[in-house]
Design a protein around this nucleic acid. Structure first.
Lengths: 97, 97
DNA sequence: TTGATAGGCAAGTGGCGACTTGCCTATGGT
DNA sequence: ACCATAGGCAAGTCGCCACTTGCCTATCAA
């Protein structure tokens, strides 16, 4: 549900992963690990990133497709768009005397 | 920073508080407590809600103004808008063969 | 078949965050 | 002056979450 989206976005490492995927779709687990280490200096274990990806997937922020021994990950921003319209003001005019 | 926004939005109770404030601005701590209990069945202590408001305030999602012994809370959705444009796709065309 | 690569499962640990409890301050009414 | 209301501060508990470690499965190449 939409609740999972907020939980998924709560972690800074997961947000970094989304950053990587928005830049290039279809990355594998190892690719993401390497990029997090190289570009952000994050020395995470492979399992850590794998678990993060699982959280992102269960929130439908990441979709994965398996091909042979590779598993490619794609970003899906649609849940974010939906979740954030929640507090959109009707108009926020200066009509609150 | 924008990091605080995600942390603030991570908790379901805090999101409920924003729900209340988007419906009516300028509520006091006690009002929010009462509404959370009435409309959502949340039996939270006053301190719990106060701490949640502190988190929301430090994320600039809530602004407060003091008047006499009352402290009114106003919603500020602008940080949400800014934080969520982070993963907006350039165009997301169907050009990924 | 062997080895290397890509990934998964499960249990354990440490720290942070949500919530409570008790007490204290300040403003307003009567 | 008194008391009730509105809110703040600080310490303590508890559960969840991020991360690690060790071992296991599957695919491809030689």
């Amino acid at each position: 549900m939409t609740e999972d989206v907020f939980k998924a976005l709560a972690d800074p490492t997961r947000r970094r992963i989304l950053d990587e995927l928005v830049e290039r779709d279809g990355q594998t687990l190892f690719e993401i690990c390497a990029r997090l280490a190289a570009k952000h200096g994050l020395g995470l274990s492979r399992q850590a990133v794998s678990q993060h990806l699982a959280v992102l997937e269960s929130a439908d922020l990441v979709r994965s497709r398996r091909e042979g021994r590779y598993k490619f990950h794609d970003l899906n921003t649609e849940p974010i768009e939906r979740a954030m319209t929640r507090w959109r003001r009707p108009h926020t005019p200066e009509s609150t005397p």
